[in-house]
Design a protein around this nucleic acid. Sequence first.
RNA 1: GGAGAAGUGGCAGAGCGGUUGAAUGCACUGGUCUUGAAAACCAGCGUAGGUGUGAGCCUACCGGGGGUUCGAAUCCCUCCUUCUCCGCCA
Length: 424
Amino acid sequence: MLQVNFIRENKTLVTEGLKKRNFNNPEILDEILKTDDLRKQSQRQLDDILAQSNKAAKEIGALMQQGKREEAEKAKTAVAELKAQSNQLKEQLNQANTDLENLLFQVPNQPNALVPAGNTDEDNEVFKAWDKPMPTLPEGSQPHWELTKKYDIIDFELGVKITGAGFPVYKGQGARLQRALIQFFLDEAIAAGYVEYIPPLIVNEASGRGTGSLPDKEGQMYYIGKDDFYLIPTAEVPVTNIYRDVILDTKDFPVKMCSYTPCFRREAGSYGAHVRGLNRLHQFDKVEIVRLEHPDRSYAALDEMLAHVEMLLGKLELPFRILRLCGGDLSFASALTYDFEIYSAAQERWLEVSSVSNFETFQSNRMKCRYKDENRKNHLVHTLNGSALALPRIVAGLLENHQTPEGIVIPKALRPYTGFDMIK
RNA sequence: GGAGAAGUGGCAGAGCGGUUGAAUGCACUGGUCUUGAAAACCAGCGUAGGUGUGAGCCUACCGGGGGUUCGAAUCCCUCCUUCUCCGCCA
């Protein structure tokens, strides 16, 4: 969430930022400032009363020790009045605090100046286009949901039987390909200096709030009501929260973490051709990279992450482009996001396979993740993350783009991991 | 799942109703000393909110939340976590 003081000092800028995002309730900023004023006022009054009552309590203590019982009793009755006042103020302060937090939770992150204006994915800016020839497929080529059937490597119907739609079953070479990709992505991340983590796949509410997934994406997450837990929608949630309530030293930067996890998303409201096959699943595998950076370095880190993902796609021999998301398409917590899309020749459309974002201090403010500068002053860190990569659409792309009459050709870089060079 | 014990600053560890944000030790930072280092000595060393140009001052925080009391790290309730024993189990 944004810091109140940031809103206070940059109200015009924040208003413009909200406009860029098509945020429908810019009046909320005034409400926030008003609530914060009330909070401060209550705090002041309460502190004043408490200071008085602390002083009185000490005096009573002194009187008791001197054996002046009657005077002490008299002083006690005087304090009762203060007590009543402080209780009321405490309540008022608590209310102001929760009101303020609820309001702040509704405000999305301030978009970076580079974020283009626009409402929908149509308005995203092509940051890097595919400048090589598009793949051409042989006669009779098929979309991946046919190919998976043909080679018997992913069974969607079986997943429906066991669980429901969006929970495919990987089989034989399909399962092996899945495992190979995970291993490949992890090895590449580790080679790039990311430390591997295997986190819990279920998180508590505090963690969900830490990354801004709650309350924003509440409906997207599977909720385990009995224990008040959530299935993770991405490794970002547990991994970023490793550093919740942590104060780093400047020498700890950069913090680079990577993690493979299954991801669980309810995807309520999704329908149609766009969810066909592997295009949108309730459970899928992903390798995520997460970084904590000094604010001065975070955008350089973002560039490094882009280069990393580019490299992966290059090794997988998939045509891709990079989009810079417009204000309307930018996720709630992000300041700047680049999406990677690979081209699916069989479906004749672009598929999003990675999203790389800088959240600046939006998450760290919620998580209270800070660093101590040279003058021992605390500041919020910048957090970043990106998929490197999400598997299902990569698999879709590999199957579709690399299909030949003889079978599906595995890219060279992946062969040491699959142990075969063709799916047939 | 059942029965006990415990949760204090970066760590260790006092305090068990009054002036304790918290002794002491270690670690850490700055300084003195030294050719350099170590040792020794001196000083500093938590987080957050409020207030002030500032030094500073005020308030809160001893696992979380609530309560008793003029006053709580200290007493009570509740939740969480850890440890020990028993049971169950991949």
